[in-house]
Simulated assay, not measured.
Amino acid sequence: MAPTGRPVYGLCVHGLDEVEELAPAGSRPGWPSVRIRQTTAAPPPSAPLDLDGGVRVLADGRTLTVDRRRGTATFYGPPLAPDLLAHPYLAPVATVFNRWAGRETFHSGAFVHAGRAWAVVGPRTAGKSSLLAALAARDVPVVADDILVVDHTEVHAGPRCVDLREPVPGPALPTRTVRAGDRLRVALPPIAERTPLGGWLFLGWGPTPAVTPVPPAELLARLAGCRSWRGLPTDPAALLGLAALPAWDLTRPRDWAAFGPTLRLVERTLTAARAVAASR
């Protein structure tokens, strides 16, 4: 029987019925299933993650246990509100279970251009969410905000939201306050569950909007370094395939006024890349 559950990050997730940012439950043949639970019981001692499970102490003091055989992820500590379960607490669960399924996961967002997903990679201060929200405000489909699950040549959609520390300029985006008042959440419309991956954008700051191609050898090293749960085994051929995709460093000023020129530069770059690919 095909696994059922609420589809997100390439998983069939159970136990999150109150989380509005997930798609309705349904059958997804071949997708791993996980049941998410919460308890205020005393947590087990920390244990390294391996191919069967593990116990991890989170940054806020909660403990997360993951069990591959049982298909469970359990949070120990004060109960988490539905908005927190959607983001950020679903991310570590999805990361582990996808790595167990042989998929790659990266701390990255992604958006769709010309039918392909383009990954947006960078540290937490690089402005990934702001860029994705600005794209969403212009009706550009957003695949994910927090982690990117790569399954062969496709990426899986994340929760239908982007979380911001402050509003982005441009077209008005309806938001609601979440995460105990710490973030503004932008709701995203439904999107295809899987989208072919087109390439990579690595965010940085600079005096003017600019793109610089990343050579494949350097891209391979970067992707290997930003994989999630690097202690788990991976398929070297999969990383080689991902490193064959086009990639650029995208720099722009820390200035809201630069958003328009930055988005136009991204549009021109990706349109040109698609034209080159189509001519081969």
Rank of each mutant, 00 (worst) to 15 (best):
F259M: 13
G260L: 12
R230L: 13
R254F: 05
R268F: 09
L239G: 00
D235G: 04
L263F: 02
R222D: 09
W248R: 05
L220C: 00
G225I: 07
R254S: 06
R264I: 11
R254C: 06
A221T: 15
T262Y: 07
R227K: 06
A221M: 12
D249C: 02
R254A: 14
R264E: 15
A221D: 13
R264C: 08
L240Y: 10
A247K: 05
D255W: 02
L232C: 12
E218H: 12
L240P: 00
R230W: 04
G231K: 08
P253S: 02
P261K: 10
W229P: 01
P233C: 08
F259Q: 05
D249I: 02
S228E: 13
V214Y: 06
P236C: 14
R252P: 00
P261I: 05
G260F: 07
G260A: 15
W248M: 05
A221R: 15
A247W: 03
R230F: 04
V266I: 15
P246V: 07
L219W: 06
R252E: 00
W248H: 09
A221E: 13
L250E: 03
P253D: 02
T251M: 10
D249N: 08
P246R: 09
A258D: 10
L223M: 09
R264Q: 15
L263A: 05
D249L: 02
G225R: 11
A224Q: 15
T269V: 05
L245H: 07
P233T: 10
R222L: 14
W229Y: 14
G225K: 06
L250D: 02
R227F: 07
R222H: 10
L245F: 07
A247H: 05
A258N: 06
T251L: 14
F259V: 10
L220E: 00
R230D: 10
W248G: 04
P216R: 03
L223S: 06
T262N: 08
L263T: 04
V214K: 04
R222G: 03
D249M: 01
L219E: 11
L263E: 04
P216E: 04
A217E: 12
A243N: 02
T251Q: 15
V266D: 00
P236N: 12
L263Q: 05
W229S: 12
L232F: 11
A221Q: 14
P253N: 03
A244I: 03
A238D: 12
A244L: 04
L219P: 11
A243L: 01
L223Y: 08
L219F: 09
P236S: 13
L220D: 00
E218A: 15
P246W: 10
G225N: 12
T234M: 06
F259A: 09
P253M: 01
R268H: 13
P215N: 01
L250Y: 03
L220K: 00
F259D: 14
W229A: 12
D235W: 04
P233E: 07
A224Y: 11
E267F: 11
W256P: 15
P215K: 00
A258P: 04
F259L: 14
L220P: 00
A237V: 11
L220F: 05
A247N: 05
W256K: 10
L239D: 02
A224K: 12
F259G: 01
G225F: 07
R254W: 06
